[in-house]
C-alpha cells in the first residue's frame, strides 16, 4: 500500500517548495548565473527578503553566491550548484509522482 498523501507531502523539500525560492531556483536553473538585481526584479522581493532566501539556499548547498566588483560597484552573482540542479529535479519528480497518484483517487 502506498504512503498516505499527507505523509508524502511532508517529505517534499521545503527549502524548494516555498514560492519565492522556487521562482529563484527556476530562474537559476535556466541560466549559468544571474545577478542579485535580476533576481530582485524577477521576484519583486525586497533586498532583505531576497538576501534571506538566498542565504537559506546557499546554506542548503543549492546555490553558490559570489561577490565581486564591476568597477567600483559591488556585484553579487548567484549560480545554481550541481547539487541544486539534482535536488530541483528530484522535487519536480516527487510532485509529478504525487500528481499521478492523486489521479487514482476516487471521490
Amino acid at each position: 500500500m502506498s504512503e498516505p498523501p499527507f505523509e508524502q507531502l511532508a517529505g517534499l523539500d521545503r527549502l524548494i517548495h516555498e514560492p519565492a525560492r522556487l521562482s529563484i531556483l527556476t530562474a537559476l536553473s535556466a541560466c549559468k548565473s544571474a545577478d542579485f538585481l535580476f533576481l530582485q526584479r524577477l521576484t519583486g522581493l525586497s533586498k532583505g527578503n531576497l538576501s534571506a532566501h538566498l542565504s537559506r539556499l546557499e546554506e542548503g548547498g543549492l546555490v553558490a553566491i559570489a561577490k565581486s566588483f564591476d568597477g567600483k560597484i559591488p556585484k553579487t552573482t548567484i549560480a545554481m550548484t550541481s547539487e541544486g540542479r539534482k535536488q530541483l529535479e528530484r522535487y519536480w519528480n516527487d510532485l509529478e509522482r504525487f500528481r499521478k497518484e492523486a489521479n487514482k483517487w476516487k471521490p
Binding site: 522556487l22 527556476t26 530562474a27 541560466c31 544571474a34 521576484t43
Partner: peptide
C-alpha cells in the same frame, strides 16, 4: 501573497533562458 505568486514558473524559465 508574495509578488512571486503572480508570475508563472514557465514564464520565469522562458524569460531567463532568452533574456537578451
Amino acid at each position: 501573497m508574495s509578488p512571486t505568486d503572480t508570475v508563472p514558473l514557465h514564464d520565469i524559465h522562458d524569460l531567463t533562458t532568452n533574456y537578451s
